[in-house]
Amino acid sequence: MVSAGLSLAVAVCLMAWLSASAAFAGSAPGSLAEVAAAVQPKVVKIFGAGGYRGLEHYQSGFLISPDGDVLTVWSYVLDTDSIQVVLHDGRALAARVVGVDPRLEVALLKIEAQGLDHFDLDAAERASVGARVLAFSNLYGVATGDEPASVQHGVVSAVTRLEARRGVFETPYRGPVYVLDAITNNPGAAGGALTDRRGRLLGMLGKELRNAQTNTWLNYAVPVDVLREVLPQLREGRVVQRDVPPAISPENALNPELLGLILVPDVLERTPPFIDVVLSDSPAARAGLLPDDLVLFVNDRLVQSCKALRAELERVDRLDIVRLTVIRGQQLIEVELAAGDPTP
């Protein structure tokens, strides 16, 4: 009996010690709790237009100055005269849109307040693939009033560019992104903050986005560098316009026939772009292309069908040199040619 009682007492002590140590670990310097507590005041909940037909009326944002500059995504939620920004302490302040970049899909808001905790864009970090990250957002609008934003945990899955494949992603933004190994692609999460393990800003959570090629949803964030670049213009209250490369007019656009190529009949949705005929004494013939060659790349862009090949050539001025990569048997062959080649 005595020994049983004793071991019970030991067990109780052990448990007490373990739970004490767990509690200690939870509030240790640099712990998640501490990092989250430090980040939360910089994250805001934004309410605006929407709230019907499946369109949420909320999104996330974060502070980038002590006097009320809020960075968030540009969306229909901001398309109203009454935007409300709710701070971590529950203060609800009216916000106005200072500037927007419709292509990057970011907006700068301003609220009237002073001495706010904020991220310093200039001190921001970069993360590599596999790095652990935290995502702070008001996904699904679960946080209201002084409730803190939700924290998600994951790693950087890829550091890549959205422009890699035209038409793959249904977004006007084409640029560098962090692809995240965490399900951040949720209503209301866009505009939230992505930080590293120490709570240093890495980027802004992007809008819901689907990969049109694999039909999978993409969880991503726009890196700070990109945001920092447009900030001055946003601050000046300008709608950021970008230089769009002038489209090539149809009469100047290249096509296979101008190169002396006749493709196989385009009968399928994805007819492989095999060369059927090479016209004699044409640029294609001079470059050494042969019937049955399969065109794989146009200027290093993969073309997976006859349609894609035509579309890609239309982006090239007929006076410019175009680089084609074809596969012949099991061999890759690269050639350069131009429609305007003067006959030798």
């Binding site: 640099g30 998640l32 939700s150 998600q152 945990h153 994951g154 949720n186 209503p187 120490r198 039909n215």
Partner: peptide
């Protein structure tokens, strides 16, 4: 498509490196 929209519940402690 099947759209997983569940927020990740797993939050690991992160400390000062």
């Amino acid at each position: 498509p099947f759209v997983p929209q569940s927020p990740s519940p797993s939050v690991r402690p992160v400390l000062q490196p």
